[in-house]
Simulated scan of single mutants.
Amino acid sequence: MLALLVRFAVPDAVAAARFDALLAAALPAVREEPGTLLYAPSTVPAEPLVRVVFAVYADEAAHAVHDRAPGMSAFLAELPALTTSVRVEELQPATLIGSPAPLDPAPHREAPPCP
């Protein structure tokens, strides 16, 4: 099992909107990846220019398949221009309990406008 916590900092609201759009476009394919056990992109309400993704993959091969998927490779290609920093933490989960229900694709809360 491979678990990643990835924190993305974006420079402004325009970059945040593009980041969100690219990631949203990739999500339908991510839902179909058999080796992706959990994929949770999130916003940080207290930090509107931060995005976080928590992902759990069956193994490193499943993560490689994920990165090569067309929607994800398009997202990764634009990532350097959209971020001021990316921090990847590899986690070692002891176990994964349960299977979360799919999230409603509609946003539940909008991030406040950037200054």
Results as ranks from 00 to 15, higher is better:
Q92N: 03
R87P: 01
D12C: 12
A46P: 11
L79W: 03
D67I: 02
L2H: 04
V50T: 15
P102T: 14
A40H: 13
G98R: 08
L27A: 03
A81I: 10
Y39I: 06
E89V: 11
S85I: 03
R7T: 15
V14N: 13
T95V: 10
V10R: 01
H108V: 08
C114F: 14
A62G: 04
D12H: 09
A101W: 07
L23S: 13
A69V: 10
A3R: 04
D67K: 15
A61F: 10
L49D: 14
G98D: 03
L27I: 11
H66F: 08
V44R: 15
E32N: 01
F8S: 05
A101F: 10
A69L: 03
A61L: 11
L76R: 05
P70I: 06
L103R: 04
L27V: 09
V30C: 09
A69G: 09
T95N: 08
P107N: 07
P70N: 06
A106M: 12
A3M: 10
V53E: 07
P34R: 14
L82S: 01
P34Y: 01
H108Q: 15
F19K: 04
A46Q: 15
M72P: 08
V44K: 13
P100K: 10
P34K: 12
E90C: 02
A25G: 15
